[in-house]
Simulated scan of single mutants.
Amino acid sequence: MEQPRPHKIPQSVLVVIHTPALDVLLINRVEPALYWQSVTGAKDSEDESFEQTAIREVFEETGINCGGGTALHADLIDWGLENVYEIYPRWRSRYAPGVTHNTEHVFGLRVPEGTPVTLNPREHTAWQWLPWRAAADACFSPSNAEAILLLPEFSR
C-alpha cells in the first residue's frame, strides 16, 4: 500500500542561476507545458535551512553542484529577499488544508559560461540560457521575473 505524500511546506526557494555576462538559465516545467522558470522548490523539512534547500534543489533540477566544499558554493548568494504569494489553485492540494500562501526566499548562483545542465526529466523538459531581460520576459511567475530584473543589482 502506497503511503500518502506528506504535505508540502509553504516555504521555498527561488534560485536565479546566471553567468558573469548575466545570461540566465531557465528550465521548462513538465506540467503545465511552456512554464519557463528559474530553479524553485520547497523545504523538505521545517529545520532545513533555505541555503540547504537551494543547494538541494539546484542539484536535483539542473545537476549543478553548489554544495559546501565545491567551487561554486561561494557563488551561491542569499539576496535577503522574500516573496509571499498566493499558491496557484492547481497546486494547493499539495499543501495542508487551508494553506493558501507560500514564502519564497531568493538566491542567486553565478556559474561559469558553458556550465553543463542535466535536467530531472520528471520535473523539466528543456533548458535555455537567455539574456536577463529576455529571461524575465519568458518567466510565467511574476516573482521570478521580478527577481531576474534585480540581477544586475545583486551580481558581483
Rank of each mutant, 00 (worst) to 15 (best):
M1H: 13
M1A: 14
E2N: 11
E2Y: 09
Q3C: 03
Q3H: 08
R5Y: 08
P6A: 01
P6T: 02
Q11H: 14
S12V: 03
S12K: 07
V13P: 02
V16A: 12
V16C: 10
I17F: 04
I17E: 00
H18V: 04
A21D: 14
L22N: 04
L22V: 06
L22G: 10
V24C: 00
L25D: 06
I27Q: 07
I27Y: 04
N28K: 07
R29I: 00
V30R: 05
P32D: 00
A33G: 08
L34D: 15
L34P: 02
S38N: 15
V39E: 00
V39F: 00
G41W: 00
S45F: 10
E46L: 13
E46N: 08
E46V: 05
D47M: 13
D47Q: 03
S49G: 02
T53N: 10
T53H: 03
I55M: 01
V58K: 01
E60A: 14
E60V: 06
E61K: 14
T62A: 03
G63E: 07
N65Y: 12
C66S: 06
C66V: 01
G67T: 02
G67H: 01
G68D: 01
T70Q: 00
T70I: 01
A71D: 09
L72R: 01
L72I: 04
A74F: 02
D75M: 13
D75G: 14
L76W: 00
L76M: 02
I77W: 08
D78L: 05
W79H: 12
W79I: 08
G80S: 03
G80W: 03
L81F: 11
L81A: 07
L81V: 14
N83I: 04
N83D: 15
Y85H: 13
Y85T: 13
E86W: 06
I87L: 07
R90I: 12
W91P: 05
W91F: 15
R92I: 07
A96S: 12
A96M: 09
A96V: 12
P97E: 09
V99I: 15
V99F: 07
T100L: 13
H101S: 15
H101G: 06
T103R: 15
T103Q: 11
H105D: 09
H105F: 14
V106Y: 09
F107Q: 11
G108D: 08
L109P: 10
L109V: 09
R110V: 05
E113T: 15
G114Y: 09
P116I: 07
P116C: 05
V117D: 08
P121R: 08
R122S: 13
W127I: 01
W127L: 06
W129G: 11
W129F: 10
W129R: 12
W132I: 00
W132M: 03
A134F: 01
A136V: 05
C139M: 10
F140Q: 12
S141E: 12
P142T: 11
S143W: 11
S143F: 15
S143D: 14
A147F: 09
I148K: 00
L150R: 15
L150P: 03
L151D: 05
P152C: 02
E153S: 13
